[in-house]
Write a protein that binds this DNA or RNA. Sequence first.
DNA 1: ATATATAAAAGTATGGGTTACTTTTAATGA
DNA 2: TCATTAAAAGTAACCCATACTTTTATATAT
Lengths: 223, 223
Amino acid sequence: MILESYNNQEKYLVSIDCAIFGYHEGELKLLLFQREKEPEKGKWSLIGGWVNPDESAEEAATRVLQHLTGLHDIFLEQVSTFSKPNRDPGGRVISVVFYALIVIDSERMKLSSEFGAEWWPVKSLPTLIFDHQQMFEMSLERLRQKANYHLVGRELLPETFTITQLRNLYNSIFSKDFDPGNFRKKVLSFGVLDRLDTKDTSVSKKGAFYYKFNEQKLNESEN
Amino acid sequence: MILESYNNQEKYLVSIDCAIFGYHEGELKLLLFQREKEPEKGKWSLIGGWVNPDESAEEAATRVLQHLTGLHDIFLEQVSTFSKPNRDPGGRVISVVFYALIVIDSERMKLSSEFGAEWWPVKSLPTLIFDHQQMFEMSLERLRQKANYHLVGRELLPETFTITQLRNLYNSIFSKDFDPGNFRKKVLSFGVLDRLDTKDTSVSKKGAFYYKFNEQKLNESEN
DNA sequence: ATATATAAAAGTATGGGTTACTTTTAATGA
DNA sequence: TCATTAAAAGTAACCCATACTTTTATATAT
């Protein structure tokens, strides 16, 4: 910024909103809050928070997520900034939107509900406040772009998983059914999965090998 | 945002910065300002401006661009928001970054220089202030992504152009040499170019047909 | 013990699209 | 008329996604 002076300029509230995706019971889910006060009391919203004076928007999002989930090192990516003057009836608020990917386990379920948050299947979300529906849609689009070029399983699945579980995750992200054989070939061609010696026999009588991400190969392939 | 009250929250200055790309003399160029006051007086920066109370960041960027170029309907896309607490030594400023594509003609050259702006080849930029180098790099990356899926010639070339000119534009965007035959095939397969009856004979003795974008087919293919 | 059922896992065939390269064409001017 | 130039068209090889088929391993039923 260079044209005019820093004084005499209006300042605005700056917040972050976060589309938190998780994978649970074979479905892609989104973590939502029910709003406890007016305006729009009772309606659902993405998880949000203010940007404090000593932190960037990324740091604010990380702080809010840690507080809510207890997790460190959450995968987080900036999506877009929403800044229409009247997007929030409570005042002029400019919101930087992120999406995050979370492995949902029982601990996570408990913590979320303590805060009054609930996991909703992305296929059947409730009505969201303000421009949060658009925020969600842009976030899902970004997640799909990400999943096209990188395996997103590590962020959404337990440490070990079968190719079929990974495929089901992708099915729910893209709302379509990938061909089992082709998906396996494609996924293994990334060269970042290690096959374990153990099998999951709960679904098939033959049993499906468990896999896990090889962190080293993952890092090499990132860039 | 839902957790805490709107009061008692710190507010911040919000600006936009814009990486304005143009194409001139066979080179991809970036429009830069020389800073006229401290801090960092004399150094170069992207084009920026404040977000006013009655406008969104997109509207602010559009206003700044119109003022600088005299053009309406400039192609503009949000890149990212930069929000580190100390990114601007003059105060806490959160900046929403955009990139824009401009056809450079003599009128545009004149207007820019009236404002003290200069077109720099992206291959040899001067040192930029603050985090503007990173803003530029992210913007160029976005432009490349865009150019992969859409022909960006209409925003950067004169109304009529040869395939070779379009290829040279792409060469300079991606810093590599595309194969002439393959580039032609690929570009025409988009089905959005109309061949004119006139030829450019200044380069080749055979002469290269001029083309122009077919707006209707362009709109159909956008989504 | 043998057969059956199941889904994983491996294999195959096709077509589209990219890439590297070659040939032809049109116009100029020596 | 012929050599020159770059546009324009053509060709062959290869990669990769897709649709589909076959084989394999093993728990369960007979």
